[in-house]
């Protein structure tokens, strides 16, 4: 129960950060927090009562957790890193061209 609520709290914190922060880098950090919430939610969905890690080295019986969400989350983490890389390089470019990271300033500079 706690873990689901934590995951949703992280997603909401991330979305709130993306909406109410004005600094582009902080917006990217908020995006990353929301990402983490999604990963946590997926991993929590894959948990089974009393399950161990899905690794058969030295396995001694008993239930195992679902390996599929874990593989999916690994892919999602890589894609999350890609998005971060692209976003940060865009922000570097914004800073080079406008000299600011404040989105409301950027809005005023249009035209």
């Amino acid at each position: 129960m706690m873990v689901y609520l934590t995951a949703f709290a992280l997603i909401m914190l991330g979305i709130a950060g993306m909406l109410f922060r004005r600094n582009l880098l902080k917006i990217i950090m908020a995006l990353s927090v929301a990402d983490s919430g999604a990963y946590l939610l997926l991993i929590a969905i894959g948990y089974r009562s009393g399950g161990t890690a899905p690794i058969l080295t030295g396995y001694e019986g008993g239930p195992m957790v679902d390996p599929l969400p874990q593989a999916l989350v690994l892919t999602a983490i890589v894609i999350g890193v890609c998005v971060l890389i692209m976003a940060v390089s865009l922000v570097v470019n914004v800073y080079r061209h406008y000299g600011t990271l404040d989105v409301s300033e950027l809005r005023r500079l249009r035209g």
């Binding site: 929590a44 399950g51 899905p54 195992m64 679902d66 599929l68």
Partner: peptide, 19 residues
Amino acid sequence: GTLAVPPPEGNRPLADKFL
């Protein structure tokens, strides 16, 4: 039932096949 509390016992058929 995706966010089951407590977590479910058995794995889904696909996960079971992989394991």
